[in-house]
């Protein structure tokens, strides 16, 4: 049900763009106003979100230690899984952000009929997650060609590598296929695994459909429904140069659908779970080094508390202590 509503929501979004452009001719609204608005929302509210996270301190040093601590010099410690300094944390975070280290640990716990628990390999979520995120990033980089007058060499290199299979005309970008495949997998596992279905919210299905919609409209535009690419670039360059204008030659409606879904994603992003993109860099269990025994970690809101002092304790038990032969401060 939640999935169906999310699906319909994305269909409606696409329909809005279609009607807006094809029927109502609101090219300027969909090509200029909404993109500016969406990017502004994204930038402003992401900054707000990050500042909000940042405004709450890390009162305690609470890394999740996933390996041997640094203790005695002859015991080999785990620099990356239990970092003892900045370098270790950088390494740990690099593994986490670039290769999803923690997700790589994933296991599938199963209870056999003979009541034995088994822990099987379960790398598909990791693989699909990694494929999804990397494809998305590469596609994003490829799109830089629409936002730079001279296409940077790096972007061209990425394009070349991405299309090195040399299939079809225009050349197939592998990431397009991988992205669609990965999203499909991520969606299917949410539906197919009872626990996943049980815990999933609209907040989970909607972004999947939205990104699928973006990818699909992009693929349609590139490979099937031809679009005037020169005009598209004229529009995007005018946006980047802050002198927005809709090109003379009409751009097909599929472009506007693609763009509107992207705008929705941008505007939705700061208010959704997608903020994990920034949040992962601030997670205290990963970005803090395990140094709390070596160097005092300061809690900015540490305050004095009521304690039961030794003097009070001795007052409570003085006679018993003396009878037991324990030294006391006051006779």
């Amino acid at each position: 049900m939640k999935a169906i509503i999310s699906f319909i929501a994305v269909l409606i979004l696409a329909a809005i763009a279609y009607v807006g452009v094809d029927v109502l001719n609101m090219q300027y609204i969909f090509g200029v106003v909404i993109p500016y608005l969406a990017v502004a929302i994204f930038v402003i509210f992401m900054i707000v979100r990050i500042l909000k996270w940042g405004s709450s301190p890390n009162p305690f040093r609470i890394p999740t230690t996933c390996g041997q601590q640094k203790s005695l010099p002859w015991i080999k410690y785990s620099k990356l899984e239990n970092p003892s300094g900045v370098l270790g944390v950088l390494g740990r975070m690099a593994l986490e952000v670039l290769f999803f280290r923690s997700l790589f640990r994933n296991l599938k716990t199963q209870l056999r009929d003979d009541s034995q628990l088994t822990y099987g390999e379960a790398k598909w979520l990791w693989a699909a997650g990694l494929a999804f995120h990397w494809s998305f990033l590469i596609i994003l980089v490829r799109h830089l060609r629409f936002f730079t007058q001279q296409v940077p060499a790096a972007v061209q290199l990425v394009e070349m590598l991405d299309s090195f299979l040399q299939i079809g005309v225009p050349l197939l970008y592998m990431t397009d296929a991988v992205l669609l495949g990965a999203i499909t997998y991520l969606f299917l596992r949410r539906i197919a695994i009872p626990q996943m279905r049980y815990l999933s919210l609209m907040n989970d299905y909607f972004p999947l459909f939205l990104i699928f919609g973006i990818a699909l409209s992009g693929v349609l535009m590139r490979y099937f429904l031809k679009t005037d690419i020169v005009s598209v670039k004229m529009l995007t360059m005018s946006l980047v140069g802050f002198s927005p204008s809709i090109p003379q030659n009409p751009i097909s409606v599929i472009f506007y659908i693609h763009l509107f879904l992207i705008c929705t994603l941008f505007a939705y992003f700061p208010f959704s779970k997608l903020v994990h993109m920034a949040g992962v860099f601030m997670s205290p269990t990963r970005v803090l080094a395990n140094t709390s025994r070596v160097k005092r970690h300061i809690n900015p809101w540490n305050y004095p508390v009521h304690v039961h002092t030794y003097a009070e304790y001795e007052d409570d038990f003085r006679d018993k202590m003396k009878n037991a032969g324990l030294p006391v401060e006051k006779e």
């Binding site: 979520l125 626990q195 779970k273 949040g279 997670s283 205290p284």
Partner: peptide
């Protein structure tokens, strides 16, 4: 929320991927 970054962050960033689900001894 103002005192603990952990709390504030953990309220926002979960994507419900479910990797934690069958790791908990109480769930198992």
């Amino acid at each position: 929320l103002e005192k603990y970054r952990s709390f504030r962050l953990f309220m926002d960033i979960c994507v419900r991927c479910g990797a934690c689900a069958d790791k908990c001894h109480f769930f198992i």
